[in-house]
Every structure is written in C-alpha cells, then in structure tokens.
Amino acid sequence: MLISVDREVCQGHGQCAMVDQSLFPLDGAGYSAVGDGVTVDPGKEDDAELGVNVCPVQALRLD
C-alpha cells in the first residue's frame, strides 16, 4: 500500500496529520509532505485509510 499526495490540490488543512503525523507529515507551511508513493508500514493500513478519507479536498490517495 502506497500513499501519494496531489500537491496542487492540498490546501493545508492538516486533518491527515491529526490521524497520524508519521504517515502524513506536514511541511513548514502546513501542507502535506507525503510525497509520491510512500510505503505504508505493516499495521498502519487502517490509519493510512483514515488519513486519506479525512482529507476535505481529497488530495491524498492510496494505491
């Protein structure tokens, strides 16, 4: 399972980081610093799904 962010869509709400800051780090301006295709560690799948689902602008995705 991989997490990716569309930086053009992210508006810096930070809801994902409230779920799990290690999975959804933010940059200095409060925008997602996830990158593209970051691997989700075993046991973190539920947090990854929740973090993606709480994004109000759907900037995150799981592959």
Rank of each mutant, 00 (worst) to 15 (best):
S4I: 04
V5S: 13
V5D: 08
D6A: 10
D6G: 01
D6K: 08
R7D: 14
E8H: 03
V9N: 05
V9I: 12
V9T: 06
V9S: 10
C10F: 01
C10G: 14
C10L: 03
C10T: 02
Q11I: 00
Q11E: 11
G12K: 11
G12V: 09
G12H: 02
H13M: 02
H13T: 07
G14T: 07
G14N: 06
Q15A: 15
Q15W: 06
C16H: 00
C16P: 00
C16D: 00
A17R: 09
A17V: 10
A17C: 10
M18A: 15
M18K: 12
M18E: 15
V19D: 07
D20T: 10
D20Q: 14
D20N: 14
D20Y: 06
Q21S: 10
Q21A: 13
S22K: 13
L23S: 04
L23P: 04
F24H: 07
F24W: 04
P25M: 12
P25F: 07
L26H: 03
L26E: 15
D27P: 09
D27A: 13
D27Q: 09
G28W: 03
G28K: 01
G28D: 15
A29C: 10
G30S: 06
G30I: 05
Y31K: 05
Y31F: 14
S32G: 15
A33Q: 15
A33G: 13
V34E: 03
G35W: 01
G35P: 02
G35Q: 02
G35K: 12
D36N: 14
D36H: 15
G37V: 12
G37T: 13
G37Q: 12
V38E: 08
V38F: 13
T39F: 02
T39W: 05
V40H: 11
P42K: 06
P42M: 02
G43W: 07
G43L: 13
G43P: 11
K44H: 09
K44V: 06
K44G: 02
D46L: 08
D46V: 10
D46W: 02
D46H: 06
